[in-house]
């Protein structure tokens, strides 16, 4: 089964989803990512979905779960690169994901994580 690579970038983790995701792959990702957040003492997660052309409620829920789980582990998640058609469809589906942070691309997401840490003052990203 294919796996989604998790890359370490300084205090952050970068997850790039590139496959048409199998439900099981999504579940494995939750497992591995939470483990890596702890083992790497990561302070933020960038979830790059710019290659994903369909997000249904299952994948949407998984994204929301990843954000909530990493928050509990004191790492902020930013979802980056959502395609316009996917954003429009998610909203119509009824899944606006109000509690997740978003950015246009990986650069903007990185800036967002850095400024959040700075604002918190203690090296912890602010909500």
């Amino acid at each position: 089964m294919e796996r989604i690579p998790i890359l370490k970038m300084g205090p952050y983790l970068l997850v790039t989803i590139q496959v048409d995701m199998h439900d099981r792959v999504a579940m494995t990702l939750q497992d591995e990512l939470t483990q890596r957040i702890v083992s790497e003492r990561a302070r933020g997660v960038l979830l790059d979905i710019s290659s994903v052309d369909v997000v249904d409620s299952f994948i949407g829920r998984m994204i929301g779960n990843i954000a909530s789980m990493s928050r509990v582990l004191d790492a902020e998640t930013v979802v980056v690169g959502m395609r316009p058609a996917v954003a429009i469809t998610l909203v119509e589906l009824g899944l606006a994901l109000p509690s997740i942070r978003t950015a246009l691309n990986v650069d903007a997401g990185m800036t967002l994580l850095k400024s959040a840490r700075k604002m918190a003052g203690n090296g912890r990203p602010a909500r």
Partner: peptide
């Protein structure tokens, strides 16, 4: 593209 994405997402559900 948006209509494609909508029907594919509905079909996925």
């Amino acid at each position: 593209l948006v209509d494609q994405t909508k029907i594919v997402t509905a079909a996925s559900e």
